[in-house]
Design a protein around this nucleic acid. Structure first.
Lengths: 356, 356
DNA sequence: TCTCACTATGAGACCGGTCTCAAATAAAAA
DNA sequence: TTTTTATTTGAGACCGGTCTCATAGTGAGA
C-alpha cells in the first residue's frame, strides 16, 4: 500500500469526491457524517479519504454552520494559581463537551480585556467565560452578552448585570474569619488586597471594582461594625498589585506604631509576601500577628506555622462556569443564573488570641 | 444619533457596502485595510460600518487568507505552576505579535496529545507549541511538522527529531547538584520523578520518555559513576504521577532500612509532597535528609528550612518558544534550532553534610 | 489635444465546507 | 404491471470575507 507520500496540505472534499468517483455533496456527507449514504459509497469515500490523507478544515466547517466549537476564556493572570486551577476546571469540562479553549490574559487591565473580548467575538467563539478586571465599566460585557453568544462571569460579577455568574461565597467567608478574630480579642485587623483605587486609598466598598473582593470587604466591615469597632475602613489596604508592592505595603503596615494584631490577605500571592515580610521583620506568627489568607495555595500547609486559609472551590468554580456555558450552548435559555459555591475555613496554626 | 439598536449579529461587508453606496469590493478594502481607496469613500464606508456596528468575521477572513492568527499550545497540565508560568511567557509574546492562543491540556497522555494536535491542525492554527508527554512515539509530531505549519517543542524534545526545541540545561543542573551531594559525603542519593515506566521500575535512562527528565537522570548517573558509586540506578524512583502516588513512594523510600541521605525531586509538586512526608515521619531536613527540588516554586522559600532548588527560567522557556515560533511564522526557514536556557541552583538551607 | 501611466472602483471567482432541492433509482403497495 | 413512497445521489447556492482582473477616471508629459 506504499502510497505516494500524501502532499503536505489542503486535500479537499472535492479531491476526495473525484478520487472516489462521486459528487462533492456525497463525499461531504460521508466526511461530515450527516445525511444518508449507501454503505457502498461510504466505504469508497472513506477509502479515498484515507488514501489522500484528507484532513477536514474546521474553519470552513464553522463558516457555514456558524458554530466554531471554541469557547473564549479571559482571565486576569494565568500565572496566578487561582486562575490556572480554575482554567483546569474549565478546560476539562470543555474538552468533555467537545469544545476547545482560546485563552487570553487580560493582565487585570480593562482595556486589554475589552480588546480580548472583541478579538474572541471576531473569531466567532461559541461562548465566553470572563473574569472581569473591573466591574465599573461593564459595557463590553453587556455588548458581548448582546452579541447573542452566551457569557459566564467567573469569580467576579456585578449584581447589576443580568449575566450568568459563578462565584464563591466570599462575603460569608470574610465574615466568618472576622468574627473569629474578634472573638479572639483582636481589634486592630488589617485587610490587604491587590485591587486598587485611583488614589491608592480605601474609603468605602464601592471603591472596589472587583466583586469578589468587594463582597469580602463588605463582610469584614459589617462584622466589625456590629461588634462596635469604629473606622475599620482605615485598616483596609489596597494596591498590592505586584509582590514588590505587597512587600512595600506590608512592611509599612507592620512597622507602624499601631501595628495590626491580625491580617487578612486577599489572595495567596499576597499572603505569601506578607509571610516573608513577617519573617524578615521578626514578627512572629501567630504570637505577634494572626494571619489568614484567601486561597488554599500549596505553600500554606508547609510553612512554620502552617497558615489558616479560606479554601475556595477553585477548580469547581471553573468547572461550574464551563458547565453553565455548555448548557447555554445546548439551547438552555432560562433566566440568568447565579451559582454560589461554598468556601471553607481550613484552620491551621497561624491564628491565636490577640497579644495583651 | 440615537441609532436603531444594531441588530444582534452578522452585519457583513455587503451590508456596509450597500449602506455606503459602494461595491462590496470597495467596502472590503476599507474594512480589511488593504488596497487603495479614496479618502472620500473611506470615510463613507467607515461611517456606514459604525452605524451598522459592523463586526468583522475573522473566520471568513482566515478562510481566504489561510492564516488564522492563532497558535495552538499543548501542555501536560496547566495546573502545574511550571506550565502556567511558561504559558504566561507564550501568551505574552503571542499577544505582542498579534496572535491568540488555543490551549489544550494533554494530561500527560499521549493519545489525548495526539488528538489535541489533530484538532488544532483542523482548526488551522498557524503554528504549534507542544510539550510532548512521551517522546517514544513522536509520529504525530512528525506529522504536524510535515503539515507545513511550524512546530516548537517546549521543555522536552528528542535529539532524534529535527524540530525546533527550547529546553533548559537540565543535565548540567543535575550534574551540579549530584556533585555537591557527593562532595558533602552523600552516597545514598535518591531521584524521584513523575515519569513512569510500564512496570513502574527504573533500569536505564532510555526507559524515560520525557527528554528533560531523561537528561537529568543521565547527568545524575554520570556523576555518580565517575565518583565510583555503583548501581545508582536502584535509587531512581519513577511513577510519582499524582501527589498521592508521590506520598506513597516517598513514605516507602524514607521508611526503608537503607534510607537515602539526599533526595532530588524532579519537580516542585513532588518536592512539596516529599517535604510533607518528611515532616510526618519526623525526618529532619537537612540533618536526616538533604533535599533539592527542581523548579523554584513559591513554597520553597518559606518553609523551615527553605529548600534549595534548581531555578529554571520557566517564563523564559515559554517566551523563547513563542518567539521562535513567531519567527518561523514570519518566514524564517532556517535549520531546526535548539535553544538551551541556563538554569541556576538557588542555595537555601535544605542541604547539609551526610550524617555520619 | 492626445497618449500614457496611474489611481480608484466594480464584477465576480474563490476558499472549503454545509445544505437545499430536485432528479434518479429502488422498494413497496395497488 | 402500474403507481406510490422511500432512499440515494448530484447540481449548485451559500457562508463572509479576499483577491484578481477589467474598466473608468485623472493629471502629467509630448
Amino acid at each position: 500500500m506504499d502510497q505516494s507520500p500524501p502532499r503536505s496540505s489542503s486535500v479537499t472534499v472535492a479531491d476526495v469526491a473525484r478520487k472516489a468517483g462521486v459528487s462533492k455533496a456525497t463525499a461531504a456527507r460521508v466526511l461530515g457524517g450527516y445525511g444518508t449514504v449507501s454503505d457502498h459509497v461510504r466505504d469508497a469515500v472513506t477509502a479515498a479519504a484515507r488514501a489522500l490523507d484528507y484532513q477536514p478544515n474546521e474553519l470552513a466547517r464553522s463558516m457555514t454552520t456558524g458554530r466554531s466549537g471554541t469557547i473564549g476564556v479571559v482571565v486576569g493572570d494565568i500565572e496566578n494559581p487561582f486562575f490556572s486551577l480554575a482554567m483546569r476546571g474549565i478546560s476539562d469540562v470543555a474538552r468533555q463537551a467537545g469544545f476547545t479553549v482560546i485563552l487570553i490574559n487580560s493582565g487585570e487591565d480593562a482595556d486589554t480585556e475589552r480588546s480580548a473580548i472583541r478579538t474572541l467575538l471576531a473569531k466567532r467563539v461559541d461562548g465566553l467565560i470572563v473574569s472581569p478586571a473591573k466591574e465599573s465599566d461593564a459595557d463590553h460585557l453587556r455588548e458581548a452578552a448582546r452579541s447573542g453568544r452566551p457569557l459566564v462571569l467567573l469569580d467576579r460579577g456585578s449584581e447589576t448585570l443580568d449575566i450568568d455568574t459563578v462565584i464563591a461565597d466570599d462575603r460569608h467567608a470574610a465574615e466568618n474569619i472576622t468574627r473569629r478574630f474578634i472573638a479572639l480579642g483582636h481589634r486592630r485587623i488589617a485587610y490587604l488586597t491587590a485591587c486598587d483605587t485611583p488614589d491608592h486609598r480605601f474609603r468605602a466598598p464601592t471603591d472596589i471594582n472587583t466583586g469578589s473582593v468587594r463582597r469580602r470587604i463588605e463582610g469584614f466591615l459589617d462584622v466589625c461594625q456590629k461588634a462596635g469597632l469604629e473606622r475599620m475602613e482605615d485598616w483596609v489596604h489596597v494596591g498590592a498589585v505586584t509582590p514588590e508592592h505587597t512587600r512595600c505595603i506590608a512592611t509599612v503596615i507592620l512597622k507602624s506604631s499601631r501595628r495590626p494584631t491580625a491580617l487578612i490577605a486577599s489572595d495567596s500571592v499576597i499572603g505569601l509576601e506578607v509571610f516573608k515580610v513577617c519573617r524578615e521583620l521578626g514578627v512572629t506568627i501567630p504570637t505577634d500577628l494572626s494571619l489568614v489568607s484567601f486561597h488554599d495555595a500549596d505553600w500554606t500547609s508547609v510553612t512554620t506555622p502552617p497558615v489558616t486559609v479560606v479554601r475556595q472551590p477553585v477548580y469547581g468554580l471553573g468547572e461550574a462556569a464551563a458547565k453553565l456555558l455548555v448548557e447555554r450552548l445546548n439551547g438552555n435559555s432560562a433566566e440568568a443564573t447565579r451559582v454560589v459555591l461554598k468556601t471553607e475555613v481550613v484552620e491551621r496554626a497561624s491564628v491565636a488570641a490577640a497579644p495583651a
